[in-house]
Computed example of a mutant assay.
Amino acid sequence: MAKNSLPMLPKTGGGALSKVVWSLVGVALFVLVVKYPNDAAVFAKGAFGLLGGVVEGLVAFFRQIGR
């Protein structure tokens, strides 16, 4: 069986194209934060709120299993 059995996942390692794409993503995020700090803050607050809700849901699920 192949080392990477799921074709949708990228291969490990980094080629030149991968580095260029991640660099562009980093530059885009930097520009977003510098030019539109309020929008970036709202986005970050929403993302962390969503992440917190997921963690709380998992904790509640595992607590119910433990009973």
Rank of each mutant, 00 (worst) to 15 (best):
F30T: 10
W22L: 08
V20L: 15
L32Q: 05
G14Y: 11
F30V: 10
L24W: 11
N4L: 02
V34M: 07
K19E: 07
S18P: 06
G13T: 04
M8L: 13
V31S: 02
G14M: 15
K19A: 11
V31P: 02
V25M: 04
G26M: 00
N4F: 02
L24F: 12
V27A: 10
M8Y: 11
W22N: 08
V33T: 09
S18N: 12
N4M: 00
M8Q: 15
G15N: 07
W22R: 12
F30S: 09
A28T: 02
G13Y: 05
L24R: 13
L6G: 11
V34Q: 04
P10Y: 04
V33D: 04
F30Q: 07
K19C: 07
G13P: 01
S5E: 15
F30D: 07
S23F: 14
G13F: 03
A16P: 10
K19N: 09
P7F: 10
A16N: 09
T12A: 13
V27T: 09
N4S: 01
M8S: 14
N4Q: 01
A28C: 03
V27K: 06
V20D: 09
A28W: 01
V31N: 01
V21L: 02
G13S: 03
A16H: 09
G13C: 00
S5V: 14
V34A: 05
V20K: 12
L9Q: 09
V21M: 03
G26P: 00
M8D: 12
T12G: 14
N4C: 00
T12C: 09
P7N: 09
T12I: 12
G15R: 04
V25E: 02
K19I: 07
S5I: 13
K11R: 06
V20Q: 11
P10E: 05
L29Q: 08
S23K: 09
G15W: 03
L9V: 12
L29Y: 08
V21N: 02
L6T: 12
S18V: 12
G14Q: 14
W22Q: 08
M8E: 15
G26C: 02
A16I: 14
W22K: 09
W22D: 06
A28Q: 00
V25A: 02
K19P: 06
L24K: 13
L24E: 11
N4D: 02
P10S: 06
V25L: 05
K11V: 05
K11G: 06
